[in-house]
Computed example of a mutant assay.
Amino acid sequence: MHFLIFVLISLNFVFSSQLEELINFALKNNTKLKSFVYLEKANTFRSLFMKSLPNPEIRFTFRNFDTEVPMVREENPMSGYAITFMQRYTLPVKREKSSEIFKNRAKEVKVKREIYERELIKNVKILYYDFLYTYEKERILKEIKEDLYILLENLKEKYAQNKALLSDILMVKTEIIKVEEELKNNEALREKIKGEIYSLIGGKFDLRPGRLSLFKFPQNFSEDESVYVRLLFEELNTLRKELERAKVEHYPDLNLLAEYVVRTGNPDLFSLGIGVSLPVWYEKRERFLVLEAKERIKAKMKELNFTKNFVKERFLGLKRSYNITLKALKTLEEEIKKKEQEIEALFLAYGYEKVDVREIIRAYRDLWKLKIQRAFTLKKLNEISAEAEALI
């Protein structure tokens, strides 16, 4: 008994260890996951850009040439060469609020990265459970093949004693061929799954055979802490910052001007100027930016409430599904024990020629289906757990 417990613990450790290695490999090598780092930096750089003033403008102008002699000359005291420097000065409050928008978008990218990471882990787990399921199925199919060969040898002995039919031997051989074909299909499926795993994790990984082990359903779920809800909170914060920015859009901007004019035979001229934008069209222009931002916030609030409820119900639905499937697994275990006892009884009766070999094969088929269904149910339970973990 102690030895059996030690073996089960060892199998679970190997299974968990390889899965953890696989996940770490995926987190390190998945190229799309890396892209979020660049997107976050891009928004950070944009926030710094929004703090700065627009580039100044410099102009060189030939001024007031007359039509008779198109050049600067003493006879035309209004003519000259002008160098003009202009700078648009956006108010600091506008630049700061624009910068805050992109700072918060960088936070959005962080949460999006976490969402993708959770989805990546979920998909890696599901594919890995599929991979291990092929080994569970292979083990069961080999057991089936071994049982059929034992039954075949038994039939051959009885056939030599004229106690069995040739058709019974041929029927068992046909079953063996079916199992061998299923083993080949199972191996092909495993290679397909391995290819999907490699493409998802971003490289080759030394996948080793293993046994499926049951993972518990996650606990302590809060919809407010869900990564999907947190993303909407950040998006809502961004919209609020856009609203704050829209509220100052009508604030006047300044235009600064400095000009130097060179004149031939006359004193040079120097000019300074300042211009201010006037919000005379606020009611017909900037006001609509504020209204737009408010409506976007209302829409995002509705989406947030919907997502909170959706995530909550999704988690509870997965929990109910897990509990129902767990009961189905226990029922399968009981059915397998009953079927094994039935087969023992059939073999005993077969020894006394009280049952037909076809009844034994039918019972074996039921047992094999139950065992494969048990492995599939165990895989399904782990997939449900993985989906629930991605919501947390």
Rank of each mutant, 00 (worst) to 15 (best):
R285T: 09
E244D: 14
E68S: 13
V227N: 01
N55S: 13
E225R: 07
R320D: 13
N30H: 01
E242L: 03
A349E: 12
E108Q: 07
L278F: 13
F288C: 04
T61H: 10
T377L: 01
R139E: 03
A26Q: 01
A188K: 05
T31R: 07
F62I: 12
L200K: 06
K28C: 05
E359Y: 12
V311H: 02
N29I: 07
G195A: 06
R105W: 01
E313G: 08
F310H: 10
L289T: 10
T31H: 07
N43R: 03
E303D: 13
L27N: 08
R358P: 01
S385C: 15
I115P: 10
V280N: 06
T331C: 04
E21C: 03
K298Q: 14
T331G: 09
L367I: 11
L183R: 09
F13A: 15
L346P: 07
E180F: 01
Q373L: 10
N266I: 04
Q18A: 12
L120Q: 04
Q341K: 15
L39V: 01
V93W: 12
E242F: 02
K327R: 14
L33Y: 14
S199P: 01
V111N: 04
K97S: 05
K330T: 13
R63D: 11
I372H: 02
E191Q: 08
R314H: 09
P279T: 07
A164K: 02
V72E: 02
R240G: 14
S226V: 04
T325C: 00
L33W: 03
R73G: 08
A375S: 14
E223T: 12
Y350D: 09
L370P: 04
E114K: 15
R245S: 11
S385A: 15
K112D: 14
V227E: 00
E191S: 06
E136H: 06
R365W: 00
E340M: 06
S98G: 09
E295V: 00
N382W: 04
E286Y: 00
S52R: 15
P92F: 05
I126N: 13
S17T: 12
R320M: 13
E286R: 00
A386M: 04
I140N: 13
I197E: 00
F131L: 00
K369A: 08
E138C: 00
Y260K: 12
R358K: 11
F233G: 01
M50K: 14
K294S: 06
A246P: 02
G202A: 04
L33C: 03
R105H: 04
L91D: 12
S385P: 04
D268M: 07
K312I: 00
P54D: 11
P252W: 04
R208M: 12
L189A: 06
E249L: 06
P54G: 05
K337Q: 10
L256F: 13
